[in-house]
Design a protein around this nucleic acid. Structure first.
Lengths: 339, 339
DNA sequence: ATCAATACCGGAAACGTTACCGATATTATT
DNA sequence: AATAATATCGGTAACGTTTCCGGTATTGAT
């Protein structure tokens, strides 16, 4: 379809413009020590030939790239999308461009490959700094500015933005128990993720501190996906003594719960109260009560921190705790003691 | 926070392992002509030092990068998100990784800067090929495999995936007129975008071929955003002779129309029928009748085409027309002739 | 025991760019 | 008119890899 000619180099431009490579490089980088007429001539040649410099070569030699890397396990996750919106907003306000790096399906390839990919992008490469979302393994990175959103490890040795997952879960449980619920099911998130564990811990602690024994039968392992949650919720709802409320570790799981309830003819909120976590945009339309952890804001703040870091400024605080807020909608109801 | 030491190079590894640079490179690339014990030793050193090769240097020297670039004007747009989901799916099935490139706010910087950014990424650089979404300006690219989704130009000189915007708009209008509507408002998209123009043309042609004169007053300029659409819809609804239906050029605009209607106490669908375009995920929850153009599938197909191109295969067809389908939900109603 | 084949490894060039240093031509200074 | 300062440019060395070529050891064959 198109002629597959060799890529143009700065040499080609120099040759046709009748100048040296250095001079072309100078006009390319806007240096002032080049005669205005030669500059104009070179610019014209560049335009005519359609030349652009190689990012690879450029960023190997010089060190400012105006490019920030964003590492996300999976675009497509509403969670990732919300964060990316904030990231995008910060980027738009800055002079940086964004280079997103994803390894596609996070389930498939284990963390090992994943990490290696990170590092190979970041370490000596193409970007001025990196924002990592919901992942472990930035321990290797020693030389590039880096900020993490929702790091899996609890105390990373790099700056991070973290949601207050424990407090958020506590708030949910207080709300649910305030409505009279005692048998509350829990669909957990992936256990290797710190935030998932903290939500689970909030669930447990809230129960015990309210004097309610934790029934392990009511805690079902999930993986943050709608599908798994749907399956697990079905199990919960078909127990002999089913829960009157289900707290799902994230909104997608909550949607799975709703799906399961619909499939079994269980009415929400009449027969079952459901709460999620994240407040993704779908939650509003579904009337899902959930906890907002301001994901968009997290992305925004994290990117601002990173930009500061890149500019050599120091951060006022290394870990930014993001507030959570219970968003009450219509998926919960007070329990009427029918027995 | 962290020691800002210089980045490790292959030289450092070679030195501490007591071998030459070439040898390290060989084990790095899995060549077989290196003794198994030295290989093990080097691997251990690499692991211990936490070394990873520089993407910049590597991709400058060798030519296979296993990296595909995706250029999107704005993540955050539901439109972009849907396409990215499909892209992500194709990527997950392949051995490639994704490098997303965005210039943030597309409104701010004109196309000029935009294009330059493209090209500088693509041309001689970091990726094996590039997927461009909803944009003009890939004319410069001559040497890298490239595929466009929804290109702005009508007949690009590179492969592309295009929605059948004209037919989709026709279907909407037939549906609306089939319900008895004759005064149908239109909120257009950004005029520099080809697909927006084709939807407008579909609107016009459907009216005239049905013998209905086009009332230019009913056509309001939009820009694919909810906000603008809301404002324009308000104007439409406050006319002396307001439309009984509004066809918005995309779903976000349709949401803006709904917002305007709510603000003015206009009931949907009783007083006003609304149709969108795109079938983004929010549309389902809103009960918005719209046309599905299978954005996710477009991203998927486009990426598959690109991968074929990169692998040196030839495409069976250079422009893939994606079917559209009218999705009827609850935002429209037959017009009862009350006058 | 000599020679050929092979396994393993190091040296050096190349990729496309930028940064530094210096050379020449032009202008200003006295 | 001679010298100093400046403007403009070219040459060359990096940057960190990979690849090619060739050189030792080691092994096998006779």
């Amino acid at each position: 379809m198109r002629s597959k000619k060799r890529a143009l180099t700065i040499q080609d431009v120099a040759k046709t413009a009748g100048v040296s490579v250095s001079t072309v490089s100078r006009v390319l980088n806007g240096k002032d020590d080049v005669a205005s007429d030669t500059q104009a001539r070179i610019m014209k040649v560049i335009g005519k030939m359609g030349y652009t410099s190689s990012l690879a070569a450029r960023s190997m030699r010089s060190h400012r790239k105006n490019l920030i890397g964003l590492v996300v396990p999976d675009i497509g996750f509403p969670y990732s999308i919300e964060i990316m919106k904030g990231v995008n907003r910060a980027i738009a306000e800055s002079k940086f461009d964004l280079l997103l790096y994803t390894t596609g399906d996070v389930q498939k390839n284990g963390t090992a490959l994943h990490e290696q990919h990170y590092v190979s992008l970041l370490n000596n490469s193409i970007t001025d700094g990196v924002l990592i979302v919901a992942s472990a393994a930035a321990e290797f990175i020693t030389n590039a500015p880096i900020v993490a959103v929702d790091p899996h490890v609890i105390n990373p040795n790099y700056p991070s933005v973290q949601g207050m997952n424990y407090q958020g879960a506590l708030a949910v449980m207080e709300y649910l128990m305030g409505l009279g619920h005692r048998r509350i099911g829990f669909i957990s998130g992936r256990p290797e993720i710190g935030s998932a564990l903290r939500r689970l811990k909030g669930y447990r602690d809230a129960l015990t501190s309210a004097g309610v024994a934790v029934d392990e039968e009511l805690i079902k392992p999930g993986d943050f996906t709608q599908k798994t949650a749907c399956k697990q919720a079905s199990h919960l709802l078909q127990m002999d003594n089913p829960p009157t409320a289900i707290f799902a570790a994230n909104d997608q799981s909550a949607i799975g719960v709703i799906e399961a309830a619909e499939g079994l003819g269980v009415r929400i909120p009449d027969d079952l109260s459901v709460v999620g976590f994240d407040n993704i945009s779908e939650a509003r339309y579904l009337g899902l009560t959930t906890v907002d952890q301001f994901l968009e804001e997290m992305g925004y703040v994290a990117m601002q921190m990173l930009i500061k870091l890149i500019n050599g400024e120091t951060l006022d605080l290394d870990v930014h705790k993001m507030q959570t807020k219970l968003v009450v909608r219509s998926s919960c109801q007070a329990l009427t003691p029918a027995y």
